[in-house]
Design a protein around this nucleic acid. Structure first.
Lengths: 199, 199
DNA sequence: AAATCACGCTAACAATTGTTAGCATTTTAT
DNA sequence: ATAAAATGCTAACAATTGTTAGCGTGATTT
């Protein structure tokens, strides 16, 4: 009756999902109530259901949109046969970092809260994640074969890369932030060439 | 009346906290109900309150026990003036990895769920975490000054280290696990010397 | 043997949860 | 202008939440 919902460019559903991503990041999926979300959207809880069909659906949209985003990128990178493995890894890393800077809320939520998906979607997400990690591992193994990369355990390297990137969360919370590009360069350098000087 | 709670060596409270840590890791703090926990302990929900005073207290015990554990270790490491910065970093890393292997549930929960602490404890935990990261950053900066470590942004390096280690979660979930010591060596090598061969 | 304590149970509470029904109003299309 | 669609509201629902009260039984202490 009184309040109206704003929408810049995109549907009202998009507004709801964006606010939800923010809350899910701050408090977690389970600890965020629909009334909580409604309040931040500026509407009563019941009104949300004119735009979404359930709380679960919101999480699904966030998770799968993000997952597809990463999956298309790695396919694009991996399709190019003229890049070295190290170059591919660097591109993947930089893409992750940029995503973590630009779409922070959704990327973070999709990484931390996907466990709360329910079962058709949960299994789907699990295999997507597995497939994604496997693709990166293959790039690393290719690099090992060609002598560009140290002979380390590829799954372990993937694990380090992906989780290191998700640590950008604490960069966001930090008071004295360095610039995003500096962060990116630092992270890539540390992961590719390590902490130790000279070697 | 009928059921009895077991206890190997440690109080019944310890049993409850251990089971809680497992559930908090699997489903998150908010998504774990006291009835859920009670069922896994083999008792009715109300009976838990003979041993703990609230759900919040369980999380507090898990988080602060773990935090103190890490804090004492870094103090011990840092007190030794004969170690190089790289050696200190390696020791800290190896301690984190070992903790993640041996006390998986509690370390993981303490890292992911501390946000659900409430306010006297929440602020306390926030400053403890800040202080801990700051100590590691100081070690790195010392290493940079002495020329052992590349001149990178120390907070970024800390962020990478700590989050890389927390990725051991996916090692736990993995089917074909490499041995714990191999994992440890791989992780330390990658973080200290990077992925790239030779340099 | 008596008294105390530890610890389990059932029942119940107030609050909060996600969600639906039904109705009113505004916006869009005809 | 009128019909249709979109979107908001209030009220209510059943289920679940953390937690307390009160009672009983078995073990431990005196």
């Amino acid at each position: 009756m009184a309040k109206i919902k704003r929408n810049r460019n995109g549907t009202r559903k998009d507004v709801i999902i964006a606010k939800a991503a923010k809350l899910f990041r701050e408090k977690g999926f389970s600890a965020t109530s629909m009334r909580d979300l409604a309040e931040h959207v500026g509407v009563e809880a019941a009104s949300l259901y004119n735009h979404i069909s359930s709380k679960a659906e919101i999480l699904q949209e966030i998770c799968f949109k993000t997952a597809n985003n990463f999956m298309s990128h790695i396919e694009e990178v991996d399709a190019n046969p003229n890049k070295t493995a190290i170059e591919k890894i660097q591109e993947i890393l930089r893409f992750h970092i940029k995503q973590m800077l630009d779409n922070y809320e959704e990327v973070y939520v999709s990484d931390r809260e996907w466990k709360h998906l329910t079962d058709p979607y949960l299994s789907n997400m699990q295999s997507q994640r597995r497939a994604y990690r496997q693709r990166i591992a293959s790039v690393i193994e290719e690099g090992i074969r060609k002598g560009e990369i140290k002979p380390i355990d590829a799954p372990t390297a993937v694990l380090i890369m992906l989780h290191a990137v998700s640590g950008i969360e604490s960069w966001h919370r930090s008071k004295k932030k360095i610039a995003g590009e500096v962060l990116e360069d630092n992270m890539v350098q540390i992961l590719v060439d390590g902490l130790r000087k000279q070697a």
